[in-house]
Design a protein around this nucleic acid. Structure first.
Lengths: 342, 342
DNA sequence: TTTCATAACGAAAACGATTTCGATTTTACC
DNA sequence: GGTAAAATCGAAATCGTTTTCGTTATGAAA
């Protein structure tokens, strides 16, 4: 009933625990015969090493922690999948924790992971996080930490990101190129770096094209999320306040879908009366009517890359070699669909 | 740099490791003064117990494993969230593994979890799983196991499910009640229990209403998944083969959305020419046009319930009390929307 | 002064595996 | 046959906690 131990194998074979351990790990000072005997018995008894004992000695848990704002989210789901599948290749297990976009929770989750002695931590910041003590604490404890997507520029660790500003610039430029004269922006929440960068890309594109930047055309969300309803509400507001707007660059596909749904309801024709570009290339954006022009954000690849980088740092840490943080930028692409003219 | 240990605290205070340990756990045979001293120092040194050492002694890892077919999935995302948030309340961490709908992988993941000595396992079966040795092995090792959603009736463990057959019956009945005379079924993959049950509910509703059951109107998927494209393909096929069909009960909202997209393309009016009922009440089904009548499947609650049941069994197991498996059925509801007449 | 209960602390074993280092045996070679 | 080298093995320490079972000191009761 209870799991088999080395000791039990040793007793059955009348040899020492040491030899059993060595035999299973192919040490050179165990005779082929003994090795064969041990391995055979271990197999029939279905022996698996007690990971706690192993890790207590070896100091590595073969486990990493992942903290994300929200599990129920198309982009993060893909990131999770990328991380898990890559981690599996190296024999790593992933513990997933949610911050629910709350700084307090995020802090607590990190402490939990630290006390569980994970080998490294992967994190995408909560929108509410403006203080980075908890992250610096991780770094000071010399535990590998990699941030992805929603990062903090001030924290000294590796980061996997996309060039939000560039992508937003391209998105906005596309609106301009297809004839939009007055372009609004649904910016999402205030704080997170990618909101900021996307906003900056939008603004830069306007100015580079000699267009006026009007702060009144930038719509913030009420709360720290990007929801369908935010899209509906902001679309309704925009429709009332700025009837002359003929293009919107929207922070996220989910919000874009909300907006489109509201415009459909209001009878506003897309893209004839108003063009829309979203962000993230969520599956649904290719399905809804009209299909949405958007920026493809590679969630799965980001997850893979994030784990690979973390793994690299874990290995370096284990071998006591110093390693300097890397910023890895993943490519994005504009996906042209029906919500913009051509 | 390295984490603080009991030993270090003991040395600084010139007392024994034993006393430090006891002080931190409020044993009665430590004086209040010593307790205060120890706790203060532990706090300033930021001491956290080494979980591996603790678990090696106590035999519990405060960790559970979760095996699901697919992370990137609206329903499972919600389940994950329900599990994680409930687990958190009891101080449990969750290790998530994917089976990718493959039996081989599922088996491997379970072995991985067993070797990592998780306290219990939560699983939703891969569509391809028809052999249950790996699950029975878990039960034989006396490790708590709870299945949810996609279960195997033959395995003797607790199960959290919905009454798929009843829900499918209600869905089909709704089609009949709103005037459909010839009703097809997109059944999804062949094997999993909920596919079977939903099919049976569909069939029973037809027969109970004196309608003919025609096997040719039941469409299987090519592969073991439920995708948007399956919906499109089956819709196209149905349109060619059975032009007289005026209602479809579809296994999953995702497939329903695919079907609707295809019918939209073909110019088939919903619900005038053909009514559609989906399954799961995915967020998108309330957003797409037309909005989809569907069965609400409570993913979050299922996750919560699954963890609660597992936790109950873990506690029972710890206290050496026997406990018999429970089957818990969660309520579903028909959500009426635009894809059916009223 | 003796006896005894109580309070306060500590030594040591245990959890299961890994690894160093020393001991023993076998083989090889002159 | 004797010695050195190689091949095999095992004792014991270690990782950090928990917990049992003593031990010592203190004061109260007799």
């Amino acid at each position: 009933m209870k799991p088999v131990t080395l000791k039990e194998i040793a007793e059955k074979l009348n040899i020492s625990v040491t030899t059993v351990s060595k035999a299973l790990k192919d040490y050179s000072d165990v005779s082929p015969k003994t090795k064969a005997l041990v391995k055979e018995l271990a197999a029939t008894l279905n022996y698996t090493p007690n990971s706690f004992a192993v890790h207590l000695r070896t100091k590595e848990s073969k486990t990493i922690g992942l903290v994300i704002p929200e599990v129920v989210h198309h982009f993060f789901s893909n990131v999770i999948k990328g991380i898990i599948s890559e981690a599996e290749k190296e024999g790593y297990l992933v513990i997933i924790l949610q911050s629910n976009e709350s700084y307090e929770l995020e802090k607590k989750q990190i402490e939990l992971l630290m006390s569980h002695r994970v080998d490294g931590i992967l994190i995408s910041l909560a929108n509410g996080t403006a203080d980075f003590k908890h992250l610096n604490a991780v770094i000071e404890q010399d535990k590998p930490l990699v941030m992805f997507d929603k990062i903090a520029k001030l924290v000294k660790c590796s980061k996997i990101i996309i060039d939000d500003q560039k992508a937003a610039y391209i998105a906005t430029q596309h609106l301009i190129d297809t004839g939009c004269k007055r372009i609004a922006h649904f910016r999402g929440p205030l704080l997170p770096q990618n909101s900021i960068d996307r906003f900056l890309g939008y603004k830069k594109a306007l100015l580079d094209n000699g267009m006026e930047y009007d702060p009144n055309l930038v719509y913030l969300n009420d709360c720290d999320e990007n929801s369908f309803d935010d899209g509906k509400m902001n679309a309704a507001k925009l429709y009332k306040e700025h009837n002359d707007v003929d293009g919107i660059f929207i922070n996220t596909d989910m919000v874009a879908i909300g907006a489109i749904s509201e415009f459909n309801r209001l009878g506003v024709k897309i893209p004839e009366e108003i063009s829309i570009v979203g962000f993230s290339n969520w599956f649904m954006s290719s399905v809804i009517s009209p299909t949405i022009t958007t920026i493809d954000q590679p969630g799965y690849a980001m997850g893979q890359t994030a784990f690979k980088q973390l793994y690299k740092e874990i290995k370096a840490h284990k071998n006591n070699v110093a390693i300097s943080p890397e910023i890895i930028q993943l490519e994005t692409a504009l996906v042209k669909r029906e919500s913009t003219k051509n």
